[in-house]
Nucleic acid binder design. Structure first.
Lengths: 346, 346
DNA sequence: TTGTACGCGTTATCAG
DNA sequence: CTGATAACGCGTACAA
């Protein structure tokens, strides 16, 4: 594979000149430039980013840590980040998080060893040791958490305000006349789950509605747990079936809907169902799912901004961005909305 | 950030010794080793992979090109590859494919500039210019296509035999007594789509069943097109409704099911439905979906093998692996199977 | 068992 | 406008 020296030789110039052409930073004689460019084409020259990274201490690479979840929200988030990164000239280096906590730390070391320019953590399931390690790393490299992970880590954070969003959702359901609202929450150990649950409770209070324990089901963000939740609500719940079910994630809402459809229970006539995340399936399924859209485009954009700025401004202070979720009203709560969302809609 | 020299100084040895400890290649005095290791911990030393890659011409990195599809099959494939790569000490460098064909080529150049050790292309939608470029690149770096992309490119290929799988599926349906079998195929421009369709036709022939044009619908692998297909079969098809629908992808099958459920049509009593891919949703939805499982674990494993072997053996010959799909019989064709697949099943 | 010295491919600095 | 040269951090002959 040709290197800069080969190009220089072929173009009859010094490597410095070639470098200048590549980075077009200093003025170069047009003719010289042309000769260099031609040489590069002829030799199929591709600059070596390793060498470049050594010199410049920048690799134009973001390390991203994603969970191996079935929940496609994380895949979609990942895609947006990749896209946004590409727009600003960055590429992604990926680590999936694995079972063992030691591995989490190894993953981060792996990223550091590649001298990535920033780390983005996409998960609500942070192991404390790993998070603490990331906090320490944040002294050298910009680190961003894309979820509420509990206590105030000294890193940048960006996430959607689940509390307010869920409150909004309660109001939406109450507007439609629902009063017996059940909630499928996530595991209590996860702050994101609690935010959403707290928002639900607060929304209920504001509407003078009681929160009945028998209308609360703890799921684990999986489709199955959503199924089991609505099965519980409809078959075992002492209060009898609710007239609306709010789930803390789309996946659980879809699981709940699967149960309802299998029993011939009508949505939203018999029971309204809502989700959270607005994964693409929410828009594509039948009935279309009312949910809270996380502003993933924004999350992705702001992540990149944060990384670029922390690099350039050497800004030591951490930013904490809380973005607003958007209520998407669809057929699963509002029968006047199309049962199937059209292709080019939105 | 500490470098190898700092570690050497602190441990009172030469950098060579430190290097030896890191790579534990040559014998090192146990005491010396201990001192070095301690120094590494104290300085929080993390080896610089850029420098290492320059010297060794290996980066332990695989470049992966994935499409920005909604189809979660590709996400799952991606996860398995990541996992398999991690097991063999590799990490993933990601590029999403974008609209413009020039960008496809730029993506590959980007990967080359990072001096990745291999390229894995995960898409059925290869633009010819990009594929041709990859073919050329394959002279220097192992390249693997994970789909049937048409003509015989001089690269490694691994994919599932859609022809035989679909044939198998026809036999399964015929065994259950179905004779009016409709097929939702993919766009004709894609070889993968044609393999599956051809397998369907061949299976029908073998069973002396006519392939009626009005029972063929061309979709685009999207959920929506599956929905439209079954709508067509049940509302407009001149032959009247089929008693089984085979889709060339799970996503289309799920779309078809969405329509059927919304109309109260019973699956599989009124109509059986089958998919292809075995995305996780196929197992999690209600009714559970009969489908062809692509052996993604194998695909991922073999991909890594191929890359490692081409590297080491300098093997110039290309391998073409065709793996077998596995028929997963579930409730959408066989009512004796559980409607909901249990958590720990499989 | 350990150390010295060179080179991997690039950019930054300085001198022309 | 151009060129020579010193880093960047590491691995590895070769020498000791």
């Amino acid at each position: 594979m040709a290197n800069i020296r080969d190009v220089a030789k072929r173009a009859g110039v010094s490597i410095t000149t070639v470098s200048r052409v590549i980075n077009n930073i200093d003025p170069v004689n047009p003719e010289t430039r042309l000769a260099v460019e031609q040489a590069m084409v002829e030799l199929e020259y591709v600059p070596n980013q390793l060498a470049r990274g050594m010199r410049t201490r920048r690799t134009n690479t973001i390390g991203i840590i994603i969970p191996e979840f079935v929940n496609s929200f994380y895949h979609e988030l990942f895609q947006y980040i990749e896209e946004e990164a590409a727009l600003t000239g960055y590429s992604l280096f990926v680590c999936s998080t694995r079972e063992h906590t030691d591995q989490g730390i190894d993953q981060i070391k792996e990223l550091i060893s590649r001298r990535i320019d920033g780390i983005v953590l996409c998960t609500y399931r942070g192991d404390v040791r790993m998070l603490t390690y990331l906090e320490q790393v944040a002294g050298d490299i910009p680190v961003i958490f894309l979820d509420n992970l509990g206590r105030d880590y000294q890193v940048n954070t960006i996430y959607t305000d689940g509390f307010t969003a869920m409150e909004k959702m309660v109001f939406h359901l109450v507007d439609l006349g629902h009063t017996n609202i059940a909630f499928i929450k996530g595991l209590e150990q996860y702050p994101v789950a609690n935010d959403r649950f707290a928002g639900f409770k607060h929304g209920m209070e504001k509407n003078s509605l009681a929160v009945d324990q028998s209308y609360i089901f703890e799921g684990d963000y999986s489709l199955q747990s959503g199924y089991m939740a609505s099965q519980y609500f409809f078959e075992q719940c002492p209060k009898g079936p609710p007239d609306a079910i709010m789930a803390a994630s789309d996946l659980m809402a879809i699981g709940a809907i699967n149960y309802l459809l299998s029993k011939g229970i009508k949505i939203p006539q018999d029971v309204a169902v809502t989700g959270y995340d607005d994964i693409s399936l929410a828009r594509l399924m039948v009935p279309s799912l009312t949910t809270i859209a996380q502003p993933i485009r924004d999350i992705a954009k702001q992540s990149m901004n944060l990384i670029i700025n922390s690099k350039e401004a050497r800004a030591k202070e951490r930013k904490h961005l809380v973005l607003e979720g958007v209520l998407k009203i669809r057929h699963s709560t509002d029968p006047t909305k199309p049962k199937v969302v059209e292709l080019d809609l939105e």
